[in-house]
């Protein structure tokens, strides 16, 4: 496969396509390398990474901080150009952001100058597809009815995060890219948000790539947990989470959950130690 394919979005390369599977939202990361080079510092964030996420699959990307998780997400979102390799979505090479690939940021990125309703309707408004009452029903589902006319600054952190999820859902993306979306929330709010996300995902058939450094969160939510190495980021291990769905937060007490958690933790511990040694050696 050519690493420097000059054609962009419409170039069809390998990987499953909607025509073959009937589903949309498959992600293929091939040989992805991203090097940051601000003033000759030359930081290799991700090196030769390969990963396939099936359409409608829920994958958690787990790794120590600074391992390039966010870089991977930004390449899939189309914010960054890979230094080498490529990201394919449904067989098409990613070259720029697209409403089919929605993003939830760690710190909420609701537009502070727009009301909650205007935020939720932002996506549909951009392509003239506003449906009367749709924003209200999504906000209602997220438990935000009555806050349509409020500005984001008037909402608590958990409500802001729900509003951002509502904004994403209103745009009906195939893929939801989530960069540690709940890490700034308190434990209780976090649990409510995880439940909400699972509910939405189990109903709506979307692909989710969920970045987190929280092992329990990764196992609770995902079909597969992909553990990354310390920088330069690569796939270290893939853990299949064979716990039945629908899941609720109680599963953390089961033996199977504990086993999976121990396995993930031991991989992470190894990587964290290696990262420390790297720093000492430097």
């Amino acid at each position: 496969m050519s690493k420097h394919d000059s054609t962009t979005d419409d170039s069809t390369t390998a990987g499953p396509t909607p025509e073959t599977t009937g589903k949309t939202g498959a992600i293929d990361i091939n040989d992805l390398t991203k090097i940051y080079d601000p003033e000759g510092e030359h930081v290799v964030a991700v090196q030769d990474m390969d990963l396939s996420v099936g359409a409608e699959e829920f994958v958690a990307l787990l790794g120590p901080s600074g391992c390039g998780k966010s870089t991977v997400l930004e390449c899939i979102a189309g914010y960054l150009d890979p230094t080498d390799g490529e990201v394919l979505v449904d067989g098409n090479r990613v070259s720029k952001p697209d409403p089919k690939r929605g993003v939830v940021f760690q710190e909420n990125r609701l537009f502070p100058w727009k009301t909650i309703k205007e935020n939720v309707e932002f996506g549909p408004r951009m392509h003239d597809s506003i449906e009367e009452g749709r924003a209200e029903s999504i906000l209602d589902e997220m438990g935000l009815d009555g806050f349509e006319e409020a500005y984001p600054s008037g909402l608590s952190g958990g409500m802001q995060q729900r509003a951002e999820l509502a904004r994403l859902l209103a745009n009906d993306p195939d893929i939801m890219l989530m960069d540690e979306p709940f890490s700034a929330l308190d434990a209780l709010t976090k649990e409510i948000m995880q439940k909400k996300l699972l509910e939405v995902w189990e109903r709506d058939n979307r692909t989710v790539l969920f970045i987190t450094h929280d092992v329990e969160e990764a196992i609770l939510l995902a079909d597969r947990v992909v553990v990354m190495t310390a920088r330069p980021g690569q796939v270290k291990d893939v853990i299949d989470v064979d716990i039945e769905r629908p899941r609720d937060p109680e599963v953390v007490t089961t033996d199977r959950f504990t086993e999976l958690r121990e396995r993930a933790l031991s991989v992470i511990r190894e990587e964290a130690e290696r990262a420390l040694e790297q720093e000492d050696g430097a």
Partner: peptide, 13 residues
């Protein structure tokens, strides 16, 4: 930059 990115990912040109 995240605000511009958010807008682009929601389909804004």
């Amino acid at each position: 930059v995240e605000y511009s990115r958010a807008a682009q990912s929601l389909g804004a040109d």
